[in-house]
């Protein structure tokens, strides 16, 4: 009774609170709109000149002002997906270790150390990749993989610098993002769920793979999306090690190029209007790729949920 009076008294605060948070959430949309507007307006000259052919063209010749985005789009996709392929199992492993296996006193320090990987500046990753990782790749890992050169992934001359090294570096950089979010959501799986699984005679691994991971998959996917976003936009470290050659290749040994890298390489020194505008348009394309990948992830989650609930446990 007293509660209802109180509630009506607080009604305005309630609405204000909700409205206020909604307004701040709206600011994210506004920010997105501003960025798109900026990119659109500055890429006008490039779009007028090349139209949609820009996306499918493979040329990149600043001297004769011929520009095509395809090799950069390819490189961005390829390195980011590879990085995810490397980082996802590792991140899940770390999260499983921290929530299921590690003694409690060890969880804090290990989790902390993994998160510290995010604290290392991009340029430092780049220099480490260039001077430490690339030589190891060139002398040990790539010659080993070159035995399997009937696969399209391992053809060509092992240079060290290239798509493979770039993907590995990016994978390390997105590890903390994916693993820390996965860990947080795995923590929230109720203990009763785990006990239930164990009581059914499942092994610990089966509890993880059939109970914990399915239970927390939406959170894991959130981490994956964030990590993937970072992989797409990663600039300095990739630029230092990818070899910066605009070509479309399957081989992990070959040098490649990403959108973020070409921005980092050419933006500061570009003087011609069209050149600058083309670079901004690439930024816009990166935005669109990001949208596509996010939609794909959402779709995947939606299907997973549908089929997951259909088959039962």
């Amino acid at each position: 009774m007293a509660g209802s009076i109180k509630r009506s008294g607080k009604f305005d605060i309630e609405r204000a609170f909700r409205g206020g948070t909604a307004a701040l959430a709206l600011s994210v949309l506004v920010l997105g709109a501003i960025i798109v507007y900026e990119l659109f307006s500055s890429s006008g000259p490039a779009f007028d000149r090349f139209g949609f052919g820009f996306i499918t063209s493979r040329d990149w010749d600043p001297v004769s002002e011929l520009y095509g985005a395809l090799p950069f789009i390819w490189g961005t996709f390829y390195t980011s997906i590879l990085a995810l392929v490397i980082a996802l199992p590792l991140s899940l492993g770390i999260a499983v270790f921290l929530t299921e296996l590690a003694p409690v006193w060890l969880r804090g320090p290990i989790g902390f150390m993994v998160e510290l990987l995010a604290a290392i500046p991009s340029l430092v990753y780049g220099l480490w990749g260039l001077f430490v990782l690339a030589p190891i790749m060139q002398e040990h890992i790539q010659p080993f993989l070159a035995q399997y050169d009937y696969l399209p992934f391992f053809k060509g001359y092992p240079l060290g610098l290239g798509i493979m090294t770039a993907s590995v570096i990016v994978a390390i950089m997105i590890l903390p993002t994916i693993s820390s979010i996965s860990r947080e959501v795995m923590y929230t799986v109720p203990e009763t769920q785990r006990e239930g699984g164990l009581a059914l005679g499942m092994t610990r691994w089966e509890v993880v793979s059939k109970v914990v991971i399915p239970y927390s998959r939406s959170g894991i996917l959130g981490g994956v999306i964030l990590g993937f976003g970072r992989a797409l936009g990663e600039t300095m470290a990739v630029t230092m090690v990818i070899g910066n050659t605009p070509q479309i290749t399957m081989s992990l040994f070959d040098p490649g190029y990403t959108i973020a890298s070409v921005l980092a390489n050419e933006f500061a020194e570009a003087t011609e209007k069209v050149h600058l505008s083309v670079l901004v348009e690439l930024g816009l394309i990166l935005f669109v790729i990001s949208i596509l990948m996010n939609s794909a992830a959402k779709l995947l989650l939606w299907r997973m949920n549908r089929y997951g609930s259909g088959s039962g446990s």
Binding site: L31, L39, R230, T235
Partner: peptide
């Protein structure tokens, strides 16, 4: 989510 992929330079 999309903004998380904006490269720093942008």
């Amino acid at each position: 989510d999309v903004l998380a992929g904006v490269p720093a330079i942008v």
